[in-house]
Structures are given as C-alpha cells and as structure tokens.
Design a protein around this nucleic acid. Structure first.
Length: 489
RNA sequence: GGUCGGUUGGCCGAGUGGCUAGGCAUCGGUCUGCAAAACCGGGUACGGCGGUUCGAAUCCGCCACCGACCUCCA
C-alpha cells in the first residue's frame, strides 16, 4: 500500500490522516469560478491544487467524485450595501448581452484555460441557476427551523440566533461578539436584523433581469447557498473534502457551515482544504486591486508586466514548485526560472525513454519512489516531490553521458516513476516547440545540408544557416551525434 | 483595532532540534571548428536581540517588518 495521505484541515489547524466516510469512495467539492470575467493567474492556483489532489486520490485507488461548481447567479458586487448588483447582470448590461451570454462566454474561456493547463474535468460541474428549486427548499427549511427570517421580500440568515445554538466562526476562528465590537454599523441595512446576517434570497429590483419566482418575491438566491445545496446534493449530507481559496474561508465557507448546521445539526464537511494566494509584488493578485494578469495574457505574453509569453505547462509547474498553503510570488524572473527548470525536467524525461541499459547498475535508484509518495502524502508537498524528480534527472543525464550505468530493470522502474509522478500525478505534458510538421520537415532539410557543410568544414555555409535561423527565432543546437532545434518566443 | 499567517543565499522556494532540499542565476570544468545548447562540479542563507540546549533556521520570550481575512475575492 502506498503511504497514507495527510491533509491540513483548516478547521482543526492540523494535518490529519485522510479517511473518507465510505471508502473506496471519496467526495470532493471545490468552489469554482464566478463567470463574469476572464480567468486570471490567481484562479489557476486552486484548480491546479485540487487537480493534483484529485489525481493523487485516484492514484491511491479511491473512486473520486469531484464536484466543482460554476457560479452563474447570486454573486453580488458588494454585499454590504443595497446598491449591490449581481456581477453577471452588471457585466451583461455593460456589454449589452443577455446574462446567459455572459455566463457562456466566460465559462467557455474558463474551460479553454483549464484544458490548456491540463486540468482534468470534474465529475460534475453544477451551476447555481440549475439548482434554484433546491436552494429555495433549503431556505424553506431554514425558515421552518427559525434560523432565517423574511424581510421586505428578501430572506436572511439569522447569525445571532444561530450563534446561540451553535458555534459561529469555528472555521475562521472568529467570535461574533468580537466582530460586532470591532466593526462599524453600516448604513442602509434596514432589512437585516443583525449586521452579520447574510442573504439567502434577494428580492430583485425592477431592472434586475436574472429573477425567479419564489414564495417571498421575484428574486435570486444568495451566493453562499448554492455551494451548500450543490455539494450535499451530489456528495451526500456528510462528505469528505471541501476546497477553495483561503480568501473564501470567511465569510463564504463559514456561512456554508452555518446554513447546513442550522438545517441538519452538523456540518457536512470533514476536511476543509484551502490554498493560499498568488501575490504580485507581495500583494494578493485580485481583480479588485487591478493587479491581475489573465491566463490568456500569460500564454501570449500580451500584458505590459510580462517580458515574454509563458506556456501553460510553465504556469502549472510554477504553481507546483510551491506548497499550496504558502503564498507564491509572481515575477518574470520566477516564471522564467520555472520555465527553464521544467524544460530540463521534460528533456530528461525524453532522454529516459531512449536510455541505453547496461548489465548492472552503478547507482542505487531504489527508494526514490517511496520518497515521492512520502512528499505528496505529506499534505501534497509537490516542491519536495519535484526535488526528488530532479535527483532522477541528474541520474538520467549521468547515465546518458556514460558516467554511470543502469540496468534494464532500473531504467524501466525510472520510466514507470516518471510516468506516475511527472505525467499522471503532477499532470505535466510535453509541449511541442510550436512548429508544424511542415516546418520541422523544412528545418530537417536545411539542417541536414548544414551537417554536410560542416562535414566538409565549410564553416561560412553552416554558420550562415545557423545565424539566419537564429534571426528567425529558431535556435540550432549541435549535439554530439546530430542536431536539434527549438523555437524561442 | 481584532484574528491568523509569514520573514531562508542574487531570485523563486522546501525544511520545525544534529543528517546536501530542489530549480533559476552566478562561478569553475567537460564537450565543441567557433558560438549556442547540453552535461558535470563548487560557493553563497536562515529578520533583529536575548534565552533553553552538548547542539537552534527549527523550541521559548521580546522587538521590527510584511501579508491575508474582518460580508468584493481563487
């Protein structure tokens, strides 16, 4: 058996042994995007982090149901005052589109970016607008239990009442009294009894397009409700893992716990897993701060802060080189380093495929696999796993240079190791240089001619071919027994 | 102001009491017609002050600085 998995549980603030409710099944819910604008680098982190967790759980033999939602209604611009407008509705008005056109546009773009990052599709990708009835049912249950109240067509969750029966703030470590003592009372919240009450149902203003009929008003559901409803609908009343960014701990996940506990008497989630933020100049990358770079901009290099384009696998590798609970600072230098490191790893992976076996090994390769499992099982320590893989890279290169030897069996086990960790679990793929088949055909004609010129010591001819290709951004690499080329950006 | 977390070499980033993290950059070497590429090898660190200990990046105390959250957020 592979080593047991330990995950850091936000609610206990400890690493805990992962034991699913009903093995071999494992359920995981991750908060997906609100589809009202382009996906940026910060968004890539949770989806890559939980992609690794998804892949690793499957690799360990679990039958995983991975649910990742799409928020397509209910997420307000600003929940703290009554001018708060639904993000999607607002974007639709700005672009003069139907709200569902906005949703489709950004959902498509999100899926494209996820695909390029080689993020596996979740088992279920439910949408908030597809679960209005279920959300209304939950509101109804909360009203009957007395933890919600109607006010002017809207329905709110009664935090104060809830906190008398259950501990409110157990996930984020907050105490309601302290929050009340430490914050000002905001204007324009007449509808709510308590300032920390949150909306379950909002009455739509006459201009609001996204609206559904309900016993309380024509309106739309509150943001926190959809995750409670959709997670338990597809994963059960108690499920294993709930993931998302650390910035969602409060209020979003805290409210999820309150809602579900108020109805069922217990929280549905066993392991809360949160990834840290990607920072830029030491500050969180966020739309509201205007310091974000979209994934498309990274892939094409079309952002003024970028010195060059960075491939999807570079982004993936960059993120995996940090443990998911640490902040990760963006810079061109760091991305360039990731890009070169990844290249080294992937070139070695290709070298490994054609490595020549010897009768016996002069290097001990046993134990590396176990170290990789240990790293990943220790709360997904991908940087340590990658460090072990670079040890293998050094071995591959030494053997390839004839300085060390490996037996056929050892080469096979290293190939299996790379397949498991590099490709299957870390989800890295070989990226082509961007050249078409025709281009590589033309290049091989040119470079063969150059080899012949070199053989005749006609250096002016060989150098001219090399320099002219270089001017076009194609780097010629002379090898011991041939040549290779690469298109640089 | 409250709560939580962080400060590691030129850069990114692991590591929680003694054992080389790793990558990028740099330096030295190998290879090479030259160059690039590739490969090998070396050096450089633990925010400050005090304490505990045979031994501290790691534990404790104080200080400084940075960040996240406190109903916008991945």
């Amino acid at each position: 058996m592979k080593s047991a998995l330990y995950l850091y549980n936000t609610i206990s603030r400890k690493k805990e042994l992962f034991e699913p409710v009903s093995p071999p099944f494992a359920g995981m819910y991750v908060c997906g995007p609100t589809v009202y604008s382009e996906t940026h680098l910060g968004h890539a982190r949770p989806f890559i982090t939980f992609d690794i967790l998804y892949r690793y759980l499957m690799h360990l033999g679990y039958k995983v149901r991975y649910v990742r939602n799409i928020t397509d209604v209910g997420h307000l611009e600003n929940e703290s005052d009554d001018t708060g407008e639904d993000r999607i509705a607002r974007k639709a008005r700005q672009l003069n589109l139907e709200p569902m056109e906005v949703v489709q546009k950004y959902m498509n773009s999100f899926h494209r970016a996820m695909g390029r990052l080689n993020i596996l599709e979740p088992s279920i990708e439910p949408r908030a607008t597809g679960h209005i009835i279920e959300q209304q049912n939950m509101i109804d249950a909360l009203l009957r239990k007395g933890y919600a109240y109607e006010s002017n067509g809207s329905v709110y969750f009664d935090v104060e009442k809830y906190s008398k029966a259950y501990p409110y703030g157990i996930l984020s470590g907050r105490v309601l009294e302290e929050m009340q003592a430490n914050s000002r009372v905001l204007e324009g919240q007449d509808e709510k009894r308590g300032q920390f009450d949150f909306a379950l149902w909002k009455k739509a203003s006459p201009a609001h397009i996204m609206r559904w009929s309900s016993p309380w008003s024509e309106g739309f559901p509150g943001w926190h409700l959809e995750c409670s409803v959709m997670s338990t609908k597809y994963l059960g009343e108690v499920f294993d893992i709930h993931g998302g960014g650390m910035d969602l701990i409060f209020p979003h996940h805290e409210c999820e716990i309150a809602q579900s506990t108020a109805v069922k008497g217990h929280s549905p989630v066993r392991y809360w897993v949160h990834n840290n933020m990607i920072t830029i100049n030491g500050q969180k990358m966020a739309r509201s701060l205007g310091n974000f770079i979209t994934l498309d901009e990274l892939f094409t290099g079309s952002h003024k802060m970028l010195l060059q384009a960075y491939s999807p696998m570079t982004i993936r590798f960059f993120i995996l080189q940090a443990q998911y609970r640490s902040t990760l600072d963006f810079s061109n230098e760091a991305l360039l380093a990731a890009s070169l490191g990844l290249q080294k790893l992937m070139v070695a992976a290709r070298t490994l495929e054609g490595l020549k076996p010897s009768d016996c090994s002069t290097i001990d390769v046993s134990g590396i696999e176990e170290k990789c499992y240990e790293a990943l099982s220790d709360d997904l320590n991908t940087p340590v796993a990658i460090a072990h893989l670079f040890d293998v890279v050094r071995i591959i290169n030494l053997v390839n240079d004839g300085k060390e030897k490996l037996s056929s069996d050892d080469i096979k086990s290293l190939q299996q190791l790379f397949k498991t960790f590099v490709y299957d679990i870390l989800g890295l793929v070989q990226e082509e240089g961007g050249g078409s088949e025709k281009l590589s055909g033309v290049l091989s004609i040119l470079l063969e001619l150059r080899q012949e010129a070199k053989a005749r010591k006609e250096w002016s001819v060989s150098d001219r071919i090399r320099d002219r290709l270089s001017a076009l951004g194609i780097t010629v690499k002379d090898r011991k027994d041939g040549y290779d080329w690469e298109i640089s950006s």
